[in-house]
Amino acid sequence: MRLTLRQRTERKWLLTAEPEVLEELRRLRARVTHVTGALAATSDGVVLAHDTATVEPEGVAALTAAALGVAQSLAGATGRGAFRELLVRGENGYVATYAAGSTAVLTVLAGDRTNVGRLHMEARRSGARLADLVGVALSRAEQP
């Protein structure tokens, strides 16, 4: 993948937000029981920070980006507007992706016994907080 100079600068600045982003992910894990991992990534699949022990974050971020593409098209084609969230339930639990502004996403892994109502509440809040952090990092990138 070839990146423009601008994209490279943006990525460099985005990664400076990592400590705060990681703190937000840890806070989310602490607040919702049965959450086993969380990661923040750009919409195109670059990991910004992760708090995951059981899965490989780069792989999950890449798959999130792929699923996000399909979800965006589906939402668009059916007139549902911009992407907000995506919930997948498997036999052993949930994986959910929440929009964090227009350039980043938050992906959360949770066990089957998790309280989805609470997960939505807390993860939407975290998504908004991550959007702020990413916004600040990007505005730093735009300064000369």
Binding site: N115, V116, G117, R118, L119, H120, M121
Partner: peptide, 21 residues
Amino acid sequence: SGMALGTVGGGKDLDLTVAAA
């Protein structure tokens, strides 16, 4: 799941989705 199948009433002072979870 912690999700409400239906809600009636509530409002600004009583968010029923928060109460459900």
